[in-house]
Computed example of a mutant assay.
Amino acid sequence: MYTSLFRVLSLFLIFLTVTSCKTETKESPKKSQIHSSTIEYATGFDLIQKENNTQIIVKTPYPNSKETFTYTLGSGANDIKTPIEKIVVTSTTHIPVLELLGKEKTLVGFPHTSYVSSEKTRALIDSGLVKELGKEQSLNTEVLLDLNPDVVIGFSMGKTNKTLTTVEQAGIPVIINGDWLEETPLGRAEWVKLFGALYHENQKADSLFKVIKNNYLEAVKIAQEATTKPTILSGAIMSKDVWNLPAGESFVAQYLKDANLDYLWKDSKGKGSLSLSFESILDTGKNADFWIAPGHFTSKEQLLESNPHYAEFTAFKNDKIYSPAIKKGKTGGTLYYELAPTRPDLVLKDIIKITHPELLPNYELTFFEKLE
């Protein structure tokens, strides 16, 4: 998936209305089920271990959904048979999860393979082991059916998608992954446990998440040792003179809070993005110490070509602009969009290194680079 900090996900796929291994309900799972869940931070799914099967309960399959989907993994006639041996995923954010579990070789198809940044998975693509499936919104059904994967992992902006309905009708299970709708960094990362269940690698997935969680929480503690609290500007004008930036209750704002920073729009409402005028941003953020993630721009020259008034910001004058959009794979995919949801600990450390460099003297930036 090719997205950005504030685009939060314009490429999302698929929601299927009927499947033999999926149950739709209008109500939340029973409390007895929730009590048996092993999920700590994610709010969009539960993982229920039962005697003869495992249930994946996706509570937020698409924005504003009132439906809950239950996928049963087991040996029953209508269950998804596991451990799976062949998989199709539809977002680059799923690639690092497969690699962390050591299951990247089970990937047989992917839409827009040029977006994949990982060298390990790129090698599989280049060798012909991962087939190109076209665009996310109109997958090449013929190729996908020929691949005959054990499961397709999709994501959805709404209720219908004819392409994957066809896939389901052909007997290939589809699971809707709602990780991108999580509202906290650790909530997003915890979806590794869903993939762990598919491969019978629950213990490994639990251990991976535990390491990421502990690293993240340790970074939060380190940030609290800072003796200053720099002010933060974010976003940029993306279209029609409207400046888009994270709302105060968004997962991006949570990163800035956890890094012990003063995000100037921290008190704004909303979990997505804000759309404000340039004048409003200039009035509030002109003297911000740092400008983190200036949209899709990758140089100061690009900023000025787009709008010469960007030069009025103190962070521009002082060369304090940092972007995650610069580091790309060899075919143009952006590392941040692929790996960041799975490794929020590294995102947080990057932000701490940029704004409190004395706290992480030996750490090197993973995602962000300074705009030159």
Rank of each mutant, 00 (worst) to 15 (best):
Y41K: 14
N64V: 00
V58Q: 13
A77E: 11
N53E: 11
Q55W: 11
K66T: 07
D46A: 13
T60Q: 14
T54C: 12
P61T: 04
K66V: 03
N53A: 11
T43K: 15
I84F: 11
I48N: 10
I84W: 13
I34W: 02
E40D: 09
E67L: 14
N53D: 15
P61I: 01
T70V: 08
K81L: 10
A77H: 07
N64Y: 04
L73F: 08
S37C: 10
E67A: 05
T93I: 09
T93S: 10
I48W: 06
E51N: 14
P63N: 02
P83W: 08
E40A: 12
T68F: 04
S65Y: 07
N78Y: 06
I84T: 01
G44I: 05
I80D: 01
S91I: 07
D79N: 12
V58G: 03
T93F: 01
N52H: 14
N52L: 12
K59S: 12
K50T: 15
T93M: 06
T82E: 06
Y71M: 04
K81F: 11
V58Y: 02
F45P: 09
P83L: 12
I34V: 13
E40W: 05
I57N: 06
P83T: 05
T92H: 08
P83A: 05
Q55F: 07
T70W: 00
Y41Q: 13
H94W: 03
E40C: 01
H35R: 15
A77Y: 11
H35L: 14
I56E: 07
K66R: 02
S36N: 09
Q55N: 15
K86R: 15
K66H: 00
T70H: 02
T72L: 06
I57C: 06
S37T: 10
S37Q: 08
H94V: 06
P83Y: 06
A77V: 02
I84Q: 09
N52V: 04
T72K: 06
A77W: 00
I87Q: 05
Y71C: 02
T93V: 08
L47R: 10
H94E: 07
Y62R: 07
H35G: 01
E40M: 00
S75G: 01
Q49W: 02
E40K: 14
T90M: 14
I39Y: 01
N53P: 07
E51I: 15
I56S: 09
Q49E: 15
I84L: 06
S37K: 04
Y71Q: 04
T38Q: 06
F69Y: 14
I57R: 10
S37W: 02
D79I: 04
I87V: 15
K59I: 05
